[in-house]
């Protein structure tokens, strides 16, 4: 019996849920499908909010998803310490839900950017990054049109000062993100959001630029098994 059950959320318009579930399974955990209209988290030990265009990105990316019935259960659970990872649209949803500070806005260059991106792991102390080394450089795919992280000066200072910038872009900022921020965490370190896609970098067979994404899933598995 698998000790770790990781919920993978599907909203209407989510694209990466199958890759996310596969990445969870490859790490040795059980992937539990969660539907946006569900009202309970089915007792999962962690939740992955994958990328895509939930609710068609209407209004703002993540603005409608934030009010999905499932989020009524997820938001308080995350505040109570449930590990939650949001990638791309999942990151946008976490910001709209105020589980993470700041917001993701239109790429500075206005173009949708799809490429392999070098990033540096700045914080290897979160629930999702413990298997990396601080300062480690990894390569993950990015693919988004609205990934420019912005926050007011006070928030930015707090994020930097408290070591809550988890990932930073290297070798060119794909979206004009402030301080080259690619991903951040909450104060407790259980909620992590980033624009790059670890779930697309877990198998050579798929033409991924690396298998550097595996560390997210081994990190959470190890944490849950040892919990």
């Amino acid at each position: 019996m698998s000790a770790a059950r990781v919920g993978v959320v599907t909203f209407p318009g989510t694209l990466d849920d199958q890759d996310a579930a596969r990445a969870v399974r490859l790490a040795g955990a059980e992937a539990v499908p969660l539907w946006h209209a569900d009202r309970d988290l089915k007792g999962v030990d962690a939740v992955f909010l994958p990328g895509g265009f939930s609710y068609g990105d209407y209004l703002r990316c993540g603005a409608i998803s934030r009010f999905a019935p499932l989020m009524d259960a997820l938001v308080p659970a995350a505040r109570d310490g449930l590990p939650v990872l949001g990638t791309c649209n999942g990151f946008q949803i976490l910001c709209e839900a105020h589980l993470l500070p700041g917001a993701l806005t239109r790429n500075q260059g206005l173009h949708y950017v799809c490429r392999d991106q070098r990033v540096r792991v700045e914080n290897a102390g979160t629930a999702w990054t413990a298997e990396y080394e601080a300062g480690q450089e990894i390569v993950l795919p990015v693919k988004h049109g609205e990934g420019r992280f912005v926050a007011d000066a006070h928030t930015l200072e707090a994020l930097e000062g408290e070591g809550r910038v988890v990932f930073r872009y290297l070798g060119g900022n794909p979206n004009g993100s402030l301080n080259e921020i690619a991903g951040i965490t909450n104060e407790a370190g259980n909620v992590v959001g980033l624009m790059p896609h670890p779930e697309h970098a877990v198998e050579e067979l798929t033409g991924a630029p690396s298998v550097d994404g595996r560390g997210f899933f081994t990190s959470i598995l190890k944490k849950l098994v040892n919990a």
């Binding site: 806005t105 239109r106 790429n107 500075q108 206005l110």
Partner: peptide, 14 residues
Amino acid sequence: MLKPEILDPQGQAI
């Protein structure tokens, strides 16, 4: 409206 301090690349393009 985007707050004044938030970059508006669409407005700039226009």
